[in-house]
Design a binder for these strands. Structure first.
Length: 434
RNA sequence: GGCGGGAUGCCGGAGCGGUUGAACGGGGCAGUUUCGAAAACUGCUAUACUUUAAAAGGUAUCGGGGGUUCGAAUCCCUCUCCCGCCGCCA
């Protein structure tokens, strides 16, 4: 969400941003609706003022018949205006939630992921003097994964993690947590079964509400709509990352500037319905419905420079984690066309995965500026008492599954065994899995 | 799962249909007093939107949403959360 005043004053900038981000939104229509809406607000206020005045005049005594009649008349007028307003307000909201953040000036302009720009690279794609196996073959031979039974029990893309791989995954999580704690992050285990507002607030719905056709989120409680339109029970969702619960932690709160920036990290199970990717990455466990992840979140004052620095710091941490694990990686700066509406600047980190013969995404760092904090209503107050919306940023520290794929494939030996990265040995309890 | 009670401003806590944006107390801020401080006294003490050049207004907000009424913090419905008691499970 952006400030409507900013939109009114800078429509051409928003139109350009939407074009670059491939977002279909008619800003001129929004401005026109805004104008109409404002007019109606004025009209409603005026009518209400009259009603209030009338009621005030009646005060203690019983109102006269004339007063009651006048009141009824005013009420009927308001009712009609209210209906008009509700209609236009809905249209206004529908458009407002789609208004994109203007991407940073250094964001490459591009159509889609093919135009993302590689900005740094570490290590080299692993070379083998034997025919390398993919992670599924390795895992099967070492009894680390069971996808057949995973599918039997959990359905498509279900999997069991077994033996050394369990400690390997837990080790990855612990390793990430330890690193972040050492860098001053507050560790949190957030809820993953969460309310709608948290997901809407962090921008996980494509529009103004959950859309089962395209939103990659599991809805779990039923909404039983009654005949009068009211919803019986509140909807709940399974979060795809710790980010929404970490951000919504501060919803409707006013933070103290002296406590900023807040650096927090969350460990959670992550659920993805992958509704739009049925045919994609069907081999192995690259794309699954649930995994674990440690996520970094920063909340800072409304200062672009400071938020840029924080984002850089978080990306550095991710790089460090990959380097400590000895995984070759590259960092991409994401182009406008591959960015979602709310994002200001975005980087992806990709680890080398031999079986794909390419890099595969293991992390994503985004700066949303105040786009999320406006939806979640998180502000901060400085010494003079001025209130502003905070800036919010997030970045993966480490997910559980994909780095494991990279480790199995990059660290495999000719005999099918897998060397355990040094930093994980204290959890796995051995140097080599065979 | 059943049955009760509750949610009011920064905090505590009144109000239960009519000058209530909200008594009273605490806290905070400013002033008087003081060499300074404490105490005492006095005043101020929400947010969002909006009209206006300004001065000054208007509207909304008493957990969220909806309704009844000329008029709602107060009555009704509903959702969420909290607190009791009973049941069930660990």
């Amino acid at each position: 969400m952006l400030d409507i005043k900013f939109i009114r004053e800078n429509p051409e900038k928003i139109i350009e941003a939407a074009k670059n981000k491939n977002i279909k939104i008619d800003i001129n229509k929004l401005l026109q609706i805004d104008k109409e809406r404002k007019g109606l607000v004025l009209k409603i206020d005026e009518l209400q003022a009259k009603r209030n005045k009338l009621a005030k005049n009646a005060k203690g005594q019983k109102p006269t018949t004339e007063q009651i009649e006048e009141g009824k008349r005013l009420k009927a007028n308001s009712l009609q205006t209210d209906i008009e307003f509700k209609k236009i307000d809905m249209a206004y909201f529908d458009l407002m939630v789609k208004v994109p953040t203007i991407p940073s000036t250094d964001t490459p302009i591009g159509k889609d992921e093919n135009e993302n720009v590689e900005i740094c690279k570490w290590g080299k794609p692993t070379k083998f003097d034997f025919e390398p196996k993919n992670h599924m073959t390795l895992a099967k031979n070492l009894d680390l994964l069971d996808v057949e039974r995973g599918t039997k029990v959990a359905g498509y893309r279900g999997y069991y993690v077994k033996n050394e791989a369990v400690m390997l995954q837990m080790g990855l999580m612990m390793f990430a947590l330890e690193k972040l704690i050492s860098k001053g992050f507050t560790p949190i285990i957030p809820p993953t079964l969460i309310r709608e507002f948290a997901l809407f607030g962090s921008g996980y719905f494509s529009g103004n509400e959950y859309n089962p056709e395209i939103d990659e989120i599991y809805k779990i409680a039923n909404d039983e709509k009654l005949s009068d339109g009211t919803v019986k029970k509140e909807n709940k969702f399974l979060a795809g990352t710790a980010e929404p619960s970490l951000l919504a932690y501060y919803a409707n709160e006013i933070l103290d500037k002296k406590d900023l920036p807040l650096k927090i990290c969350g460990f959670s199970q992550c659920y993805r319905s992958e509704i739009g990717s049925y045919g994609k990455d069907t081999k192995g466990i690259y794309r699954v419905h649930e995994f674990m992840k440690v996520e970094q979140v920063c909340i800072c004052e409304a200062d672009i420079k400071k938020s840029d620095e924080l984002q850089k710091e978080m990306v550095e941490t991710s790089k460090e984690l990959h380097e400590d694990l000895g995984l070759p990686y590259r960092v991409l700066q994401i182009c406008t066309g591959d960015m979602s509406a709310g994002k200001y600047k975005m980087f992806d980190l990709e680890a080398w995965m031999p079986s794909r013969n390419s890099y595969g995404e293991t992390g994503s760092a985004s700066n949303f500026l105040d786009w999320q904090s406006r939806r979640l209503n998180v502000k901060y107050k400085n010494k003079n008492g001025d209130k502003k919306y905070v800036y919010m940023l997030n970045n993966t520290a480490l997910p559980s599954v994909r780095p494991m794929i990279a480790i199995l494939e990059n660290y495999q030996q000719k005999d099918g065994s897998v060397i355990v990265p040094k930093v994980l040995r204290k959890w796995v309890g051995k140097d080599i899995i065979k």
